[in-house]
Simulated assay, not measured.
Amino acid sequence: MFTDASEFSGPAALQLQGVSKSYRSGNTTVPALREVSLAIPAGTFTAVMGPSGSGKSTLLQCAAGLDAPDSGTVLLGDTEISHLHRKALTRFRRDHVGFVFQSYNLLPQLTVARNVTLPLLLAGRATDTVWLDYVLEAVGLAGLGERKPQELSGGQQQRAAIARALITRPDAVFADEPTGALDSVTARQVLDLLRHTVSALGQTVIMVTHDPVAAGSADTVLFLADGRLDGSMTGATALDVSERMATLGEH
């Protein structure tokens, strides 16, 4: 993580500049993000860590265009998305953003292949069958495209969800607790897969997690405390992350 895109060579996949976001709770305004600025290089795997209420989910939502900041700007690729009108933002997310959630959100009546290519169908785009076959093979689902989700294991369903996130060749894939519903062995396989999408496909992955083991799979870990960035670690192990979390917010 760099605070300024000029600090590294090559394109930035994501830039936040002075992003703040608050929510109303009764008569009280609760700040979720406080003037967050960061830039994430393309083709990297970044984890976002912090205690409950630190702003992790809000950061992901603003970065991915699911919510608009109160102030500041968000650039995804070359597009400033924080002030796009709703229809334009919906189109942009559909074409340029991949999402992986804790719940797989697969449609049971559709085959794996149909689930994976659903974003293309919704966009009115033809399916590149060569790319589809490549993505299914890359996520370990070669030969399973005609199965229904209920015929797959939980780990395989998450692999299908990751394939769906990759099918549009997005600027970035945002993963929100992608291993939260998986056992430890399957979770490791999914983390290895996300790592593989970065190293083999050149994808940019930004993952929100509460799990130090998951965060230890990333190139860089960003730490949030009380809505502010509280440092980062590169090449961190799960133990490094755990120790840093224990002192988060201390000054």
Results as ranks from 00 to 15, higher is better:
F2D: 05
E7C: 06
A13M: 03
Q15T: 14
Q15C: 10
L16D: 00
Q17K: 04
V19N: 00
S22T: 09
T29P: 02
T29Y: 01
P31Y: 06
L33E: 01
E35T: 07
S37G: 00
P41F: 09
F45P: 02
T46C: 05
T46N: 02
M49R: 13
S54A: 14
A64C: 10
P69E: 00
S71G: 09
S71P: 01
D78N: 10
L84T: 04
L84A: 03
H85R: 15
R91Q: 14
F92H: 07
R93G: 10
V100F: 11
F101M: 10
Q102N: 10
S103K: 14
N105G: 11
L106K: 13
P108F: 09
Q109K: 14
T111N: 14
V112M: 12
A113V: 07
A113Y: 02
A113N: 11
P119H: 12
L122W: 10
A126M: 13
T129P: 07
W131E: 11
D133I: 04
Y134L: 11
V135H: 07
L136H: 03
A138Y: 05
V139N: 08
A142K: 14
L144E: 11
K148F: 12
P149D: 13
Q157P: 12
Q158A: 06
A161C: 11
A163I: 08
R164W: 08
R164T: 09
R164C: 08
A165G: 11
I167C: 10
R169Y: 06
E177D: 09
P178C: 13
T179M: 05
T179R: 08
G180F: 06
A181Q: 13
S184A: 13
V185K: 15
Q189R: 11
V190D: 04
D192Q: 14
L193C: 03
L193N: 05
R195E: 11
H196G: 07
H196F: 04
A200Y: 05
V205K: 04
I206P: 04
V208M: 09
V208Y: 07
T209G: 05
H210M: 13
V213T: 14
A215P: 01
A218K: 08
D219L: 03
D219V: 05
F223K: 05
A225G: 07
A225T: 11
D226W: 06
G227I: 00
G227S: 03
R228F: 03
L229I: 02
M233K: 13
G235V: 09
A236M: 13
A236E: 08
T237R: 07
D240I: 01
S242F: 11
A246C: 09
E250W: 09
